[in-house]
Design a protein around this nucleic acid. Structure first.
Lengths: 346, 346
DNA sequence: CTGTTAGCGCGTTCAC
DNA sequence: GTGAACGCGCTAACAG
């Protein structure tokens, strides 16, 4: 039988209340008594039953997700995953709330973080914007003892407790590797090839990192590949279509396109309309309805993906663990860079 | 406040015991009373607190994992993951036990399943062998109301409740696609290329399925690629080395190797020793210490992987859910076909 | 058929 | 400082 507080009390010759004070290290216990209890705990190999403890405390975890009200498919999917978690949370003793903030707006994010701080929830998850004010706000949360998790986009050197997202440099490198290898045959040979990169904005950290990874692999391993100046589509389908169409017109020799941001609907349309004799090789991020269809049709050749559902569930698990002062299972919380070809679509 | 059994009892004008009988649909309640209670439950939107219920019941889930005592890295890793789960399970009210069985031995597996059936655990996970006796044994477990999950290798048309593993046909197709695209440049062009396939044994279903997927993609999309007769290495490094070395000697033009089973240490040695002017393109399964090193060094070009940790955790979650009659989160239980290049190694 | 009562393992008053 | 007693939400005896 697993030892309980009763066993400890008996073994240490004290009462339940004293054991409890030691367990939750509350004041009002003499050092001698305390160590007696601690010995008993160690000797019996006691592990506290968290479920029973939470029941007795009537504890309920309250988590807040701060999400940008972006209207690209990925962010919409992320919202949905959080809503799914909310729907399920009735069964677990967990309350989750979403706060929407305007995208790419550090001040709005800081405002939201401040409001959250006042509520003193059990934990906060948010899509970070890489700005000093944001880091300062996170610091205040940490001081208040509120666990924080960054979601999708990280806040380096900050005091967040965990990052639930992919390694964007590695993602960019992976894209570069695939691009280089896939191009090797039909285009590269001896002549070299030209590649376009479509980003949302170079102001966002994850986009910068992906570009960095991509460029470095191309530079190291595929010197015959020329990368054109980055196109910025602001994660907006309409704008993306325009800039891609324009680029395809001006550079008839574009052999590949790496889309490292969102707004892929526009990219897909531009490629389809271009009606080139030989389609460029396209590698994009995030598996959505449109990228999935394009992959199946052969308009896109590979999709790198981060599993939003995994990110949300992971954030919740980590926040709960941090709130309880428990360790996490590292392997379970590592967000993979999924690579999808048309052959391994889920 | 979340409604409790007390609220229902009051609202329905009955006692706690009656509410409990209805909730766990136990006999001894008049239909009228029952429906009164059910109405109250629906009206109040009651959801039972599983943690409290388990506490009261003193319930502890007991799960059994039946694993082949194979000594390849993947199976060893799988064992480790289960042991990790066992280590963690002290905190949760869960008991997990491992039964080792000789590999590729249907009778031994059936024996183990029978023994397990006698114990009446809360659930069973096992690496299936595709044989009628095994299916029959699983049927008996189902009749006894014991949830079953197949692990890594499935049992089609059987009454297992869930399969925690990858889609091996899709994995084979993915390998085929990568092989075709990666080869397109340096070799294929117009001349065509020769590819070798190394399997463990064609008697195992997952190996057969991978080959099937691989061959069909090559056949459909890369008619210039010639697949040599399958080499069987019995998942044994020494034998694998022999057969691969032999194949490389006899076919100087081998441009690619797809290793769809285990024993990759041997394959890697053979390729390294061959000292060919131009190394064949190698795609293998399962990320282990040796395949990881080979990937980093460029001896292997891509590794398809199934996350053993995910499979084990998923199996446990599913077994628990089935034992409680609860639904699972489909997205969380889908085992991905991970693709690793040297750039996205975890 | 139905209700009463005593716990499950733990946290929290209150007295002592 | 320390201990006894009650309750969290639920189940499991045992009465009636």
């Amino acid at each position: 039988m697993k030892p309980t507080v009763h066993d400890i009390a008996k073994s240490a010759g004290v009462s339940l209340a004293t054991v409890d004070r030691v367990l939750n290290d509350r004041p009002g216990v003499r050092a001698v008594t305390r160590s007696k209890v601690e010995e008993a705990i160690a000797a019996l190999g006691y592990v506290r039953d968290l479920a029973a403890a939470n029941l007795a405390k009537g504890r309920t975890y309250s988590f807040v997700f701060i999400l940008p009200e972006n209207d690209n498919s990925f962010m919409i999917g992320l919202h949905e995953e959080v809503r799914g978690a909310i729907a399920r949370s009735s069964a677990e003793r967990t309350h989750i709330r979403i706060i929407d903030v305007p995208p790419f707006d550090p001040d709005a994010l800081v405002d939201a973080l401040e409001k959250v701080l006042a509520e003193k929830p059990s934990g906060v998850a948010f899509v970070a914007i890489d700005a000093p004010e944001v880091r300062a706000a996170v610091g205040r949360l940490k001081e208040a003892g509120i666990p924080t998790v960054t979601l999708v986009s990280d806040l380096p050197d900050a005091s967040r407790d965990h990052y639930a997202g992919i390694d964007n440099i590695a993602a960019g490198r992976t894209a570069g590797s695939l691009m280089g290898r896939f191009l090797s045959g039909p285009f590269l040979a001896e002549r070299g090839a030209t590649v376009a990169v479509l980003a949302g904005s170079m102001l966002v950290r994850d986009h910068r990192e992906r570009l960095e990874g991509f460029s470095s692999v191309i530079g190291e391993s595929y010197p015959n590949v020329l990368i054109l100046p980055v196109l910025e589509g602001r994660d907006d389908p309409a704008l993306a279509e325009t800039v891609v169409a324009d680029a395809l017109r001006r550079h008839a020799d574009i052999a590949g396109i790496y889309s490292l941001g969102a707004g892929n609907r526009g990219l897909i349309r531009a490629v389809q309309k271009a009606g080139m004799s030989r389609r460029p090789l396209v590698i994009a991020h995030e598996l959505t309805a449109s990228t999935r269809a394009a992959l199946a049709e052969g308009v896109i050749d590979a999709v790198l993906n981060q599993d939003a559902g995994h990110e949300v569930r992971s954030a919740i698990r980590v926040l709960k663990a941090k709130a309880d002062g428990l360790p996490v299972i590292a392997g379970q919380e590592r967000i993979r860079i999924d690579i999808f070809l048309k052959d391994n679509l889920p």
